[in-house]
Simulated scan of single mutants.
Amino acid sequence: MIIEILAAAGDAPQNQFGFIEAMEQGGVIAWSILTVLVIMSVGSFYILFTKLIEQQKILNQYKGVRTNFWRAPTIKEGAAKLDKNSAWRQLVDDANHAEDQHAKMPDKLEAHDWLHGSLSRSEDAINSKLAGGLPFLATVGATAPFVGLLGTVIGIYRALINIGLAGSASIDKVAGPVGEALIMTAIGLLVAVPAVLAYNWLQSRNKRISELLSSFSTDLLANINSKGAVKPATMTATSTQQAGKAARTAPATATKPMGTGTTTTTTTPPVGTTTTTPKR
């Protein structure tokens, strides 16, 4: 019985309409289009992962900027606490260089404009580097469906040629070209959709980083113009907990009117204390 089943399975017709068979029906054109789509997909994922690593590194470094950099007495001393190749160190170095040139300008307005312009150029350079590769994602997202559509059009054209030559629309004449056409459409969409999602996600993260860079640049400008007197407030987790604890344990005060033009202040004692009323 088992031998008969195996013999029957061996005599079953082979599937001639798989992926490889459909691509072989398309020939050089089909394989060329598939190669282009694979290159687009690999490039998109490469840019996605490299940019995510780069962005996350900048965001992680910003935490140290808010807590360590502004605690230094001067900007130059604070620069030593930053990574040498970080975007924040680049802004600080450019600010220090602009400050050195600042003394050579007698007009205060011109000096302020020079500092502001130097920091703006530094921001633009960092943002331009972060945006590198994103045009490729946009191009893939916009063109990949049409590249797949090109394979679809060619596959349908070949199917019509086979029908015309055979004189009938039998399944064996049109299955290969039509299967190739459908496969190309699906691959084009599979390449385009992740590229568009990656582009939008990276753009939103770049926008957040750009806002942080602009805020840090403004703080640097204010600190330089005020000769170190103006610094942003830095609040650590420990100080936040201490402030909350102090707010919970502080006595509450209330003011009650006693008459025309006079008020008295009543202080509520903390929980756990007793009050003694003096005898008259």
Rank of each mutant, 00 (worst) to 15 (best):
H97G: 10
A98V: 01
A98I: 01
E99M: 14
E99N: 12
Q101R: 13
Q101H: 12
H102Q: 07
M105D: 13
D107W: 05
D107M: 10
K108F: 01
K108C: 03
E110I: 08
D113R: 01
W114C: 10
L115Q: 01
L115A: 01
L115G: 00
H116I: 03
H116F: 02
H116R: 06
S120V: 05
S120R: 08
S120W: 03
R121E: 10
S122V: 02
E123M: 05
E123R: 04
D124R: 00
D124V: 01
D124N: 03
I126Y: 02
I126L: 05
N127S: 12
N127W: 06
K129N: 10
K129R: 12
G132P: 00
P135Y: 03
F136M: 02
F136C: 02
F136S: 00
L137S: 00
A138Y: 01
G141D: 11
G141T: 04
G141K: 03
G141L: 05
G141H: 03
A142N: 10
A142P: 03
A142L: 07
A142M: 08
T143S: 15
T143W: 10
P145F: 05
P145Y: 07
V147N: 13
V147H: 10
L149W: 09
L149R: 11
L149F: 12
L149Y: 08
L149P: 09
L150A: 15
G151Y: 00
T152Q: 11
V153H: 06
G155M: 04
R158T: 10
R158D: 13
A159P: 08
I161M: 15
N162E: 14
G164M: 14
L165H: 11
A166G: 06
G167M: 14
S168P: 04
S168Q: 14
S168E: 11
A169M: 12
A169R: 07
I171Q: 05
K173C: 08
K173W: 07
K173Y: 11
K173P: 06
K173S: 13
V174T: 12
P177S: 10
V178M: 14
G179A: 08
G179V: 03
E180L: 01
E180N: 01
E180G: 01
E180K: 02
